[in-house]
């Protein structure tokens, strides 16, 4: 038995096939994430990356028509959103909704009853001045992304999923964002002590250089076509776009 097999599996996605309405968006996806690991999902727009994380989170319009999702060994297909979130699954949305009338402070208070803690958390993403503002109302793209990380800090999930955390974020904020993502993924701890694992969806890969990830995949048209070291994949994408990966997959 190799070393890695001794580390607990956090998430196992088996032959996952997902439909929204009557449209099939994912076909036969397999994925295993162990505690401490970070996996990167690449792919062109509309390829199914968001579908994958939304289906794992359990958004009801994403219907799993085949396959299974195991979280710490249990199938979670029958679990609703609340149960998944409470069990430790968290998602930083690509396009979070505006929630009129509900201030960020109130939402955090509902998630973390201790007011001091929520203020402390807000300070970490430099959003302490946003607590009186309604969630995402009038937020810029970058502010929404920061707000997503802030909410994840409050939720403190064990399986942390980030959907395009870097899109629309200005260069100055990227460093802060990466710092928070690292904290959420326990990158500051030795690998053996890490309990958290994560999935980062990106099509730019900009944050990759500042964040060590363990494995990368390319999803195209709902299928997982290639996998490998994330930086290598990113390099290939930079040089050849997604074409090479598609071609290789076809040849296989």
């Amino acid at each position: 038995m190799s070393d890695i097999e001794n580390i607990n599996v956090l998430l196992e996605v088996q032959n996952l096939t997902v439909e929204v309405g009557d449209k099939r968006l994912l076909q036969g996806i397999d994925l295993v994430i162990r505690e401490g690991e970070t996996h990167i999902i690449f792919g062109p727009n509309g390829s199914g990356k968001t579908t994958l994380v939304n289906a794992i989170m359990g958004l009801p319009e994403y219907k799993v028509v085949d396959g299974d999702i195991l979280y710490k060994g249990d199938s979670i297909l029958e679990w609703n959103l609340t149960r998944r979130a409470k069990a430790g699954i968290g998602l930083a949305y690509q396009h979070p909704p505006v929630v009129e009338g509900v201030t960020l402070g109130l939402l955090l208070k509902t998630m973390v009853p201790d007011k001091k803690t929520s203020e402390e958390i807000a300070r970490k993403v430099h959003m302490e001045d946003y607590l009186e503002r309604e969630v995402n109302v009038g937020f810029s793209g970058g502010e929404r992304k920061k707000d997503e990380l802030l909410q994840l800090l409050a939720q403190s999930p064990q399986l942390v999923m980030f959907d395009e955390p870097d899109s629309g974020v200005d260069v100055d904020s990227i460093k802060l964002m990466v710092g928070i993502i690292r904290r959420l993924l326990e990158k500051n701890k030795p690998i053996r002590e890490r309990k958290n694992g994560g999935i980062i969806v990106t099509h730019s890969g900009m944050i990759l250089e500042q964040l060590h990830a363990d494995k990368g995949y390319v999803i195209v048209d709902g299928r997982m076509l290639c996998s490998g070291p994330p930086l290598d994949i990113f390099d290939q994408i930079k040089k050849f776009g997604f074409e090479r990966c598609i071609k290789e997959a076809r040849e296989k």
Binding site: G58, N80, L81, T82, Y93, M111
Partner: peptide, 14 residues
Amino acid sequence: GEKLNYLMSRGLDE
């Protein structure tokens, strides 16, 4: 539904 789901995915019950 989108807002409800959003809050539930932060661990709030329905």
